[in-house]
Structures are given as C-alpha cells and as structure tokens.
C-alpha cells in the first residue's frame, strides 16, 4: 500500500512536471532555444496566485489562477520580445547566456519585491481527499486536480496544434522557419504565441506546484524547471505526448527515489536519469531523429 500511495504521489508530481515540460518542449521545438527562465515564470505565477487569492485580493481560486495566467502570458511575451527576439540569428551560446540572465533577473526581482523569506502558499484546491481501501490510501485534492488538469492540458494542446490554423503554423515553424515564412506564416507572431502559451501553462503549473508544496520563495521555480526540462528531454523534445510521459516518469522516479533510496539523493537520481538519457537516447522516447546539415 505504501508503494501504491508513493506511485500516486509520483504521478501527481509528474503531472505538474508535464505541464511545465510542455512549455519547454514547445519553445524548444519552435524557437530552438532552451528557455532557462521558464522555471522562474512558474515562481512568478505562484506569486501572482498568492497575491490575488490570499494576500491582497482574496479572489476565488479559479479567478486568481486566471489572473496569474494572464500576467505570466504578458511576462512571457515581454521576455521574448525584449531578450530573445533580437538574438534570433545569434549563436546558441549567446541565446543560452541571455536565457540564464533572464532567469537570474526574474529570481532577483522577486527577491527584491517579495523578500528572501518564504511565504506559505494557501492551496487553491478545495476538493476533498479521496480515501481508498478503508483509508489506507489517501489521494489529496491537490493530487487529483494536478492529474486531471494535466490530462486536460495535454488533450487541449494536442487538439489546438492539430486542428487550428495557429497550431498548424506552429508545427510548420518548428519544421522549417524559412519555408514557413515563404508560405505566408508570420514567424515572429507564431513564436510569440508559443511563448504566451508556455507561460500561461507555467502559471497553471505554479499554482499546482505551490498547492502541493506550499512554500513559495524566489528560487521555488528553479528545481522544478530543470526537472521538467529533464522530463521534456526524456519524452523527446518537441513532442507533446512525450512531455506528458516524460513528466510522469520523472515524477515517479523522484518520489520513489525519495521513498526507497535516499531523501537527499532524490534530485541527484533525477539528474542522473537526464545524463543517462542524453548519453544513450538523446532524442528521448517519442522524439524524432535530427540530422545535422552542413
């Protein structure tokens, strides 16, 4: 029973990673850059939910998550416009350092505004816990909401990409920027929309993550961010169902590692998984093989 309840917790955490990983995977697929700041957008989203639901406005949870989504969308588009857009043609080293700079900027602006002391986040979930097997396994409201939300997000996003014009434009840009432009697709707008969607998802992930682990401070987003990137690589970068599978696997590995191997080494285990994947199957589970052209 202990194993089953750990497994459920792992799937729940993994669902949150999956939502974050979607942001990574979409941005990587389309802009071909690792958005290091994505994890910190989660933290900013968490703060927005915190401010609007409990600290300042006392709004209902759903409304405060919506506010955070709007705020993070604006933030995401702004970051893209100011920091990444001028570097579209620059080397990957320059883009990567800029992304690290943005990540550092968000962490430190949060430090200046909100202070170094962590705040206690009030959960946005008010669904009662589900008890199974006479109370031997308790699935908290947060857990069920995280799983349901992530499934909905993945289905919604897949439909969006397959069925809508904007979604198809995203696919086209990720395949070949130049050709997409020739077909009349506005590449810059498509990249902006990708960042907007990724950031809105980061806000949802922020609300879910902080509800499950209710301590919010300026570095909150960094670790889930890197782990979600691991998940995105695991599933195959650029693939939406891959992000879901990768996220859940990473979540389960982390929780089981924490439970059965060592609490302190749980993070190390997840990172070791990342290194192993990149060594043996850099394209991930569902990723496509990339051929390098001269």
């Amino acid at each position: 029973m202990g194993f089953l309840s750990n497994l459920i917790n792992g799937i729940s955490l993994g669902s949150i990673y999956a939502v974050i990983a979607l942001g990574y995977t979409m941005v990587y697929g389309i802009a071909k850059m690792l958005n290091f700041a994505h994890g910190d957008v989660i933290m900013i989203g968490g703060y927005f939910v915190y401010l609007s639901s409990s600290k300042l406005l006392h709004l209902p949870p759903v409304l405060s998550v919506l506010i955070a989504m709007v705020a993070c969308t604006i933030l995401g588009i702004t970051i893209e416009k100011i920091a990444y857009k001028p570097l579209r043609k620059a080397t990957s080293l320059a883009v990567l350092i800029t992304a690290i700079g943005v990540s550092y900027f968000l962490q430190n602006i949060a430090l200046v505004i909100f202070g170094a002391n962590p705040v206690t986040f009030t959960s946005v979930v008010s669904i009662p816990a589900i008890k199974l097997f006479d109370g031997q396994i308790v699935i908290s409201g947060e857990t069920s909401v995280a799983i349901v939300v992530s499934i909905l997000v993945v289905i919604g996003l897949s439909l969006f990409i397959k069925k809508t014009k904007t979604g198809k434009a995203m696919l086209a840009v990720s395949e070949d920027k130049g050709a997409a432009q020739l077909m009349g697709i506005n590449v810059n707008k498509t990249i902006s929309i990708t960042f907007a969607i990724g950031s809105a998802l980061a806000a949802i992930a922020g609300a879910l993550y902080c509800s499950a682990y209710p301590i919010l401070q300026n570095t909150t987003g960094a670790m889930p961010g890197i782990k979600a990137f691991t998940a995105a690589v695991f599933g195959g970068i650029g693939s939406i169902p891959g992000a879901m599978i990768g996220g859940i696997l990473i979540g389960v590995i982390e929780i089981l590692g924490r439970a059965y191997i060592s609490t302190q080494l749980a993070d190390a285990i997840v990172f070791a998984v990342l290194i192993l994947i990149l060594m043996f199957k850099p394209t991930g589970i569902l990723g496509k093989k990339m051929v390098e052209k001269v």
Binding site: T230, D267, F271, A272, L278, P282
Partner: peptide, 28 residues
C-alpha cells in the same frame, strides 16, 4: 567522454545536472 558529443543547450544542462549531483552526493 559521454557528454561532450552533446552540444549547446544539452551540454549546458548536463553539466548543470552533474554539478547538482556532485553537490547532493557530497552533502550526504
């Protein structure tokens, strides 16, 4: 040896992961 055949973003994230692993192992 295993990692340097990766480039750019992947190399950065792997070295980051490696640093965290080292830190976590020495801390325990």
């Amino acid at each position: 040896i295993p990692v340097l055949r990766l480039r750019g973003d992947y190399l950065a994230i792997v070295t980051l992961a490696f640093g965290e692993i080292i830190k976590n192992i020495f801390a325990s």
